[in-house]
């Protein structure tokens, strides 16, 4: 079974994001970029399934500017086999991405598609769901457990207040959650090997998708600064404030 893993280039999670002074977006110049952390978990899952013999080939896909190839290369250095880069500069919305992924799925015919549950830049949490709808495939979202069985796959989902197990048919689209695994990082020999792995290039036009955004961003602003807290003199005062002012007890 072939696995397709979607990876996105986002601002590194260690970077403190700053809003541009003209409020049109966030500052991306000279900012360290990295693979979306949830996508790393997706790549790791595919690699583990390949190591276990359940997956035969791992293809990583990224849609974005030229530099998105670095993100693909990260996936290849972790252990994926080859990459596909859909080159596009500028804004992209989940629906356009899902359409492009659908075109790639039709071409590549994977048995399973892995995505991160959301990208830490836009926090949209939409692409995998849209992709599954467009393909008419089952979806297993927020996966913290993936187990293949004769009937398809048993997916453990992280839901509010607990875990939910669902049985789905295959092929399917999965979006992975934080606790699924701890992704490995690439060793130097694997970084060197990744240099020789192929990355195919394509474009939205080749895939027959119009990537023009449907939404207009009016303004991006910093969240309001948190107001300072208050000091209380005693436990009794704290309890009184929690009861009478905050009304939480």
């Amino acid at each position: 079974m072939k696995a397709l893993v979607c990876v996105k280039r986002v601002i590194d999670y260690n970077v403190k994001v700053r809003v541009k002074s003209d409020e049109t977006g966030v500052e991306l110049n000279n900012v360290k970029m990295a693979m979306n952390p949830f996508d790393e978990i997706a790549v790791e899952q595919a690699i583990r399934m390949k190591e276990a013999g359940a997956v035969s080939e791992i293809v990583v896909v990224s849609i974005g500017p030229k530099q998105a190839q670095e993100t693909i290369r990260t996936g290849l250095a972790m252990g994926a086999d080859r990459g596909i880069h859909v080159e596009h500069d500028g804004e992209l919305e989940p629906l356009a991405i899902a359409k492009m992924l659908k075109a790639l799925v039709e071409k590549e015919e994977p048995g399973i598609v892995f995505c991160g549950k959301q990208a830490i830049d836009g926090d949209n949490n939409q692409t995998p769901q849209m992709l599954s709808a467009l393909l008419g495939w089952p979806q297993g979202t927020f996966a913290s457990g993936v187990e293949l069985n004769d009937a398809g796959a048993l997916i453990t989902r992280e839901v509010d207040g607990g875990l939910e197990d669902i049985q789905i048919n295959m092929p399917a689209v999965l979006s992975v959650d934080l606790r699924l695994n701890e992704p490995r990082y690439a060793s130097l020999p694997n970084i060197m090997k990744a240099k020789k792995k192929p990355i195919d290039g394509t474009t939205p036009a080749d895939l027959g998708v119009d990537p023009a955004p449907r939404l207009t961003t009016l303004k991006v602003t910093e969240p309001p600064a948190r107001a300072a807290g208050v000091k209380v003199a005693s436990v009794a005062e704290l309890v009184a404030k929690l009861r009478d002012e905050a009304k939480v007890i």
Partner: peptide, 15 residues
């Protein structure tokens, strides 16, 4: 180049 950046982030991650 890409390899240099991959090495930099690989080492940073290890650290």
């Amino acid at each position: 180049d890409e390899t240099t950046e991959a090495i930099r982030s690989g080492v940073a991650r290890l650290c």
